[in-house]
Design a protein around this nucleic acid. Sequence first.
DNA 1: CAATTAGGTTTATGATGCAAACAAGTTCAT
DNA 2: ATGAACTTGTTTGCATCATAAACCTAATTG
Lengths: 109, 109
Amino acid sequence: MMPFKEMAKLDKIIHEPARLSIMSALDACTMAEFLFLQELTGLTKGNLSSHLSKLERAGFLMIDKQFVRRKIPHTTIRITREGKNAISSYWKQLDQIREITKQWEKKNK
Amino acid sequence: MMPFKEMAKLDKIIHEPARLSIMSALDACTMAEFLFLQELTGLTKGNLSSHLSKLERAGFLMIDKQFVRRKIPHTTIRITREGKNAISSYWKQLDQIREITKQWEKKNK
DNA sequence: CAATTAGGTTTATGATGCAAACAAGTTCAT
DNA sequence: ATGAACTTGTTTGCATCATAAACCTAATTG
């Protein structure tokens, strides 16, 4: 079996570093506020916002925007079951590919 | 320590799935012909060609084009020492991030 | 009341990955 | 021997994407 083709099948939504860090943080936290997530990931507000939208469209998280005293926005992000599955199987897939690569390497020596 | 920011520092040249598979294959083979590499990775010739150029410009591999009986092109690709270092430290870095993520997760439970 | 801060979103642009088109030569069929 | 099809790649064009800058609305501060 040749593992190299499998790498192309890695979920690109998750694979992108900014989103990988968002999803990893959320996988650990389950839920987080926008600004906390920004601190964790070091992303700018703009990038964080657009990556969150993309992850939301993918069904990997839910964005809950509340208004404190009806005024100040306060955004809470929650990972979904689908999101937890996605990142968990991302790592699983990557590990498998690496394992198979090692074996392939041995065999071809 | 917060591992999530570190993900943004992963070498983007290596990180891209097509190139990750090229570099993994070359790391195992040390050298390979264009068509063999195409078979291993499942990439189209066009994509393989342009990814190889990018990896060559990055100094991660060397492209040696020979002409069989002075006519038919025959391209051999060889990973460089720099390329071997790059992919090895890519995996090392990823492992570290994952390890720290796990610890961070525990601490915050 | 003007300026600045808070908490995000939208826009613009520069880079990127990909497939389709192209190139340069060779072999095969007729 | 001529042209159709195959080899072995490279170049081009398009569509997507990531990012920073600009923007928005409300609140606070001087």
